[in-house]
Simulated assay, not measured.
Amino acid sequence: MNISTFDLNLLRVLDALLRERNVSRAAEHLALSQPAVSNALGRLRDLLDDPLLVRVGRAMQPTPRALELEAPIRAALRQIEESLSEGSRFDPARSRQRFTIALTDYAEMLLMPRLLARLAELAPGIRIDVRHLSPRLPAEALEKGEIDLALGRFEALPPRFVGRRWMSETLQLVARRDHPQLREGLSLDGFLRLRHLWVHGGQTRGMVEQWLGEHGLSREIVYTTPNYLQAAHIAAGGDLVAVLPTRLARYFAGLLPLKLFDLPFELGPFHLEIVSLDLRSRDTPLQWLIEQIQALDQA
């Protein structure tokens, strides 16, 4: 294909169609008429020799070729936009940006009250949307621009992403205060005999399982949940125990009938990162937001 004869405006139309999966909504997003968007889609189909979006019932579904193009086209459009706006100064106080962040309920509780207070003072027009962090890095959503940042513990990042240190944390075991198996404290044998609930916290394998596996040991996990906050309430109301981040464990020990125990083996701290797409390293508003998040744990 000869790029010199390709109408680059068509890429904006394709991006909108892939976001909306609907001609009318894409037209509204682009401030164009519906016939204009339909005509652009017809031209794209001819140029790329692919139907791109096909009607399935009432919805339009992208073809494999369209899905293959979605992330690189969106990244290219974003890079062009950032390059063209480099000369315009980002003013947090006047910004109306909207950011989407993926994180666990624990990280949300730890971060958002302080971040929202900071934004209310410095950038009251900025809006934050939160998505729950799945057990894996939401790479596709980050590449498509559906998520701006992911905050969590990630084993290894693909080269196209950048991770910045957010905070460090340790783990403790929480159990109800009168737990019958913990009257004499917590030993390794006692830990293994307990019935556990596990909070995956955006992970497919936790630090405890990794340590136990390396030492040929295992524990009985009878309940798994993605929710840290619910885990504390379950532990307080029954005989299941949970290994939770220390800050969260201490917080709930002040609210619920819980007792905290140091783990009977050495794990050391773990680190939470702020992850974004490397292509957005020159996105001034996003970098400003990252700096605000990092500053909260340095104050």
Rank of each mutant, 00 (worst) to 15 (best):
residue 273 E to L: 14
residue 243 V to C: 14
residue 253 A to Y: 00
residue 255 L to A: 08
residue 237 G to F: 01
residue 118 R to S: 14
residue 24 S to L: 04
residue 238 G to A: 13
residue 177 R to A: 14
residue 266 E to I: 02
residue 71 A to E: 10
residue 141 A to R: 12
residue 17 L to P: 10
residue 175 A to Q: 09
residue 168 S to D: 14
residue 133 L to M: 07
residue 132 H to D: 04
residue 6 F to I: 13
residue 286 L to R: 15
residue 283 D to A: 10
residue 87 G to H: 13
residue 294 Q to N: 04
residue 37 V to F: 05
residue 291 E to C: 02
residue 138 P to V: 01
residue 9 N to W: 07
residue 284 T to V: 15
residue 38 S to A: 09
residue 8 L to W: 14
residue 157 L to N: 07
residue 129 D to M: 00
residue 71 A to C: 11
residue 114 R to K: 11
residue 163 G to Q: 03
residue 246 T to Y: 03
residue 26 A to D: 06
residue 105 D to E: 07
residue 241 V to E: 04
residue 158 P to S: 08
residue 101 I to K: 12
residue 64 P to Q: 08
residue 240 L to T: 04
residue 208 V to D: 03
residue 105 D to R: 10
residue 140 E to C: 02
residue 10 L to S: 11
residue 223 Y to H: 15
residue 6 F to M: 13
residue 160 R to T: 01
residue 72 P to S: 00
residue 292 Q to V: 05
residue 228 Y to G: 05
residue 273 E to F: 14
residue 160 R to S: 06
residue 179 H to F: 06
residue 95 S to T: 04
residue 54 V to Y: 00
residue 235 A to D: 04
residue 197 L to V: 03
residue 148 D to E: 02
residue 252 F to S: 01
residue 125 G to H: 02
residue 59 A to T: 13
residue 27 A to W: 03
residue 254 G to F: 00
residue 43 R to E: 07
residue 55 R to T: 10
residue 299 A to W: 06
residue 10 L to G: 10
residue 66 A to Q: 08
residue 184 E to I: 00
residue 109 M to K: 14
residue 125 G to D: 01
residue 159 P to I: 00
residue 191 F to W: 01
residue 89 R to Q: 13
residue 139 A to K: 11
residue 150 A to T: 03
residue 166 W to D: 01
residue 204 T to C: 01
residue 107 A to S: 06
residue 42 G to W: 09
residue 168 S to K: 12
residue 40 A to M: 05
residue 62 P to D: 07
residue 47 L to Q: 14
residue 111 L to D: 04
residue 252 F to G: 02
residue 80 I to K: 08
residue 5 T to F: 12
residue 199 V to Q: 09
residue 27 A to L: 03
residue 174 V to K: 04
residue 173 L to A: 11
residue 140 E to N: 08
residue 45 R to A: 01
residue 142 L to W: 04
residue 191 F to M: 02
residue 194 L to T: 05
residue 231 A to P: 05
residue 118 R to I: 02
residue 146 E to S: 12
residue 260 L to T: 02
residue 1 M to R: 13
residue 155 E to L: 13
residue 124 P to W: 08
residue 116 L to H: 09
residue 167 M to H: 14
residue 179 H to P: 08
residue 132 H to P: 06
residue 24 S to A: 14
residue 283 D to K: 03
residue 13 V to W: 03
residue 205 R to F: 00
residue 108 E to C: 13
residue 13 V to N: 05
residue 254 G to C: 01
residue 69 L to V: 09
residue 92 P to C: 05
residue 231 A to M: 06
residue 201 G to F: 00
residue 101 I to A: 07
residue 295 A to D: 14
residue 3 I to G: 01
residue 251 Y to M: 07
residue 76 A to R: 11
residue 161 F to T: 10
residue 16 A to L: 08
residue 273 E to D: 15
residue 218 S to L: 07
residue 133 L to T: 06
residue 86 E to G: 02
